[in-house]
Computed example of a mutant assay.
Amino acid sequence: MNRRLLAYFLLDTSGSMRGEPIAALNNGFNGLVSMLRSDPQAMDSLHLSVITYDREVTNLIPLVDLASFHPVEITCPESGPTHTGQALEMVYNLVKKEVIKGSADRKGDWKPLLFIFTDGKPSDLQKYKEMTPLIKSLDFGVIVGCAAGPKAEVSFLQELTDNVVKLDTTDSSTLTNFFQWVSSSIEMGSKTQGTGESMTLPPPPSELNIIV
């Protein structure tokens, strides 16, 4: 069996994403899948899992290899909270169950990747703070947090990862650029992990502000 590269996407679908933002998110994410399909290495090893979170947390697309991935429409409720902590708990449980560890007679999966997209901040702050150290303990190849739009707060994402990007808007062209950058990051991840080096992210386009 090939060594797999597992990429988990946490996508904020709270009420504030209604309208153009959720349409832009669908467009950008489907574009990401199309771009990745043109990379033979990604087609060979990449598996995707999509978790959406608002009041409910849903594993919208359970882990599937890139070739078998079928886009589904991401939707959001009219209003409601952003249960980011619960979403992290789901990711934690999935990663513990799905990532195959190496053993004496076989190589395990590559280090998994985690991408978190939000246009706000966690509503379940206590759960979020509980889950942050647990997520960090999982040895992800990289965790990328994206705070999109004027109400998105970067401080909570910074508790989770040093790789935080800020988007000023949630329109279609900005999200398309973000997901193009994510595509490059995943392709780079699949190449650098094979060399044993730690993963570095490609330089972002001008619309993405890296928070240092």
Rank of each mutant, 00 (worst) to 15 (best):
residue 169 T to N: 12
residue 123 S to T: 10
residue 103 S to A: 12
residue 206 S to A: 15
residue 174 T to H: 11
residue 60 L to W: 06
residue 59 N to A: 14
residue 81 P to S: 09
residue 195 T to W: 06
residue 29 F to T: 02
residue 120 G to C: 05
residue 187 E to G: 12
residue 120 G to D: 04
residue 113 L to A: 05
residue 50 V to P: 00
residue 209 N to D: 14
residue 88 L to M: 09
residue 40 P to V: 07
residue 9 F to D: 01
residue 143 I to L: 07
residue 44 D to G: 12
residue 179 F to T: 01
residue 32 L to E: 04
residue 94 L to N: 11
residue 121 K to G: 06
residue 46 L to D: 01
residue 6 L to S: 03
residue 187 E to V: 15
residue 141 G to D: 04
residue 196 G to E: 07
residue 71 P to T: 13
residue 55 R to S: 15
residue 89 E to P: 09
residue 128 Y to D: 02
residue 111 K to T: 10
residue 140 F to Q: 07
residue 64 V to T: 12
residue 104 A to C: 08
residue 103 S to N: 14
residue 175 L to W: 00
residue 19 G to W: 06
residue 150 P to T: 14
residue 7 A to P: 03
residue 205 P to I: 12
residue 131 M to A: 02
residue 169 T to C: 07
residue 89 E to Q: 14
residue 29 F to W: 05
residue 149 G to D: 01
residue 38 S to A: 13
residue 55 R to G: 15
residue 165 V to M: 04
residue 43 M to I: 06
residue 100 I to Y: 08
residue 203 P to E: 14
residue 76 C to H: 03
residue 191 K to Y: 10
residue 52 T to I: 13
residue 191 K to V: 09
residue 191 K to C: 14
residue 204 P to V: 06
residue 149 G to H: 04
residue 108 G to R: 06
residue 125 L to G: 09
residue 182 V to D: 03
residue 115 F to M: 09
residue 31 G to C: 13
residue 212 V to F: 09
residue 205 P to Q: 07
residue 63 L to H: 05
residue 53 Y to D: 05
residue 196 G to P: 04
residue 176 T to K: 12
residue 2 N to G: 08
residue 62 P to F: 01
residue 113 L to D: 00
residue 210 I to T: 15
residue 59 N to E: 10
residue 164 V to H: 02
residue 45 S to I: 13
residue 6 L to A: 05
residue 157 L to D: 00
residue 91 V to K: 01
residue 5 L to F: 03
residue 31 G to P: 06
residue 161 T to F: 13
residue 67 A to W: 11
residue 27 N to R: 10
residue 99 V to H: 11
residue 37 R to W: 04
residue 160 L to Q: 00
residue 179 F to E: 00
residue 142 V to H: 03
residue 37 R to Q: 12
residue 211 I to P: 00
residue 54 D to E: 11
residue 56 E to F: 08
residue 8 Y to M: 05
residue 82 T to H: 04
residue 125 L to C: 09
residue 84 T to W: 00
residue 201 L to A: 08
